[in-house]
Write a protein that binds this DNA or RNA. Sequence first.
RNA 1: GGGGGCGUAGCUCAGUGGUUAGAGCAGGGGACUCAUAAUCCCUUGGUCGCGGGUUCGAAUCCUGCCGCCCCUACCA
Length: 545
Amino acid sequence: MPETDTNTFYVTTPIYYVNDKPHLGHVYTTTVADVVARYHRLKGDDTFFLTGVDEHAAKVSDKAAEHGLTPQAWADQNAAAFKETFDKLDLQYDDFVRTSSDHHKAKVTEYVAALLKSGDVYEGEYTGWYDAGQEEYVPENKAKDNDYKSEVNGKPLVKKAEKNYFFKLSAYRDELLAHFEKHPEFVQPDARRNEIVNRIKEAQDVPISRTGSGGWGIPVPGDEEQTIYVWIDALFNYLTYVDMDGRRHYWQSGATHFIAKDILWFHAAIWPALLLALRKCEGFSDWHGLGELALPKQVYSHSYWVSESGEKMSKSLGNFLDPAAIDNYVAEFGLDALRYFLATRGPLGTTDSAFSPDLFIETYNADLANTFGNSASRVSNMIGKYFGGFAPDHTATIFAEIDSDAILDESVAQAALVVASRNFEKCVLDFASHAGMLCVSTVDRHIEQTAPFKLAKDESKLPEVGTILYNCAEALRIASVLLWPFIPHKVEDFWRRIGCGHYAEALADHGHGDLDAWVQWGQLKPGTPIEKGDPLFPRYQVEKK
RNA sequence: GGGGGCGUAGCUCAGUGGUUAGAGCAGGGGACUCAUAAUCCCUUGGUCGCGGGUUCGAAUCCUGCCGCCCCUACCA
């Protein structure tokens, strides 16, 4: 696939903690990544989209034991639930990470061994407040909050020291700060960068191993007593799954990591520092002949969906959208409506977003039913009525006076492409969708001002009507291409109705499009059968108070 | 306790020093009838959280307060 002039795009989601059930938060991040990945495939980029699950947590082996299963069997079961959720939503990831896979384990072992050899991972001693009842260390601030007593049984915590391996994060402060300086777009949104920069200045070495994992997890190379911490194990997934023949160029092109704001520190500080450290190791300064091991291009940290009353959706409050609730939305409104809402009304910025059923319906009716769906209906209906269902000729002149914001020609297509592209590149998805929607609104205004339905009553004016409707259909076709990443299934239906089914075929099964060619004005051939079909997005009737 | 962010029309949000603060949706009025009671035009609506300060001029910069959120070495 990679041609010399093909761009490469690599996008990831976090790998999800496998003991949780999939919920709205997981679906959201994965949907955002899918929309962006589809944009790149549409554009013709050699694209790789990775998601998956994080399995090596202590709770996984605990829970497995409770259920009388091996940790692996338990993990298999839960990983399948995530896969099923994502597959049902047609989120087209290119591979699905399992941290319990042999490949991942072997690669993590290789990386950590290299870091041990270079000295960036070293043996040290961790001292902290230990809760003997819970068999776990309590962070200093939490211990203090509870007056140095166990949160669970109230017994005093004890100072305990144990051997651990540490990563020399402190040695990479300057390099990290220099990287932030040189690449201001590394952490997005901008506002998030400050808190990380401040914290890097004070960064201490971090422990990266623990004991007593009962064989679940990846051992520290050369020290079977110690297991690599899950979060280090997990971070490496972004690299392990492309560290194989045929995929390494994805890593070198610079990854885009979508994450939620709570795990920004790991991704914006520890992860690049690990890579900087790895770069100095044998075999990574010229990684498989591809040059110095790359750093991620961008870490995009989004906020949370909250309930209507503004509370964080959480398990303990029992107010988050679980797979059943998500299924209900899909059943009622369709897959594309859910995607469109999540991607365009979601918390991509620094502020949390409320998941409100009213707002969902409002967005669905306003953008999908009344704008795109309705415009497609009126144009295809008139072509059916006045031209027997075939795209008309467009050589006649239009005599109506048209305002500048209602003109339909190649400049509209070009402007929409520019706006959509710029915003997709910056991951500003609401604005990216507006580009296509604006194109559709222009069609509605154009129809209003040229009134083809009036002209059609006079047979001598049919050629003019033909030009008007041809331009409308062309603008809708171009809008639909720009909207495909958001509402792929309905757009593909629409394409089949207007003789563009080959777009859908090209994009099927992780295929690639040709955005620049497809948004050229005048691609629709006169004489092409145009089918009206059922409404793409039937309006949702709301009971009025 | 420390660091960071947010608070703008009924709702969701743009807007980081400069004319009477904007958009979409909702509300009101009108037009049209090709269309999914859709669409198009016009329109109501804001002491920009509160108080001080800097400035010729602040939603925008500084400061105090109030409310909400994130991070603060291992539970993503």
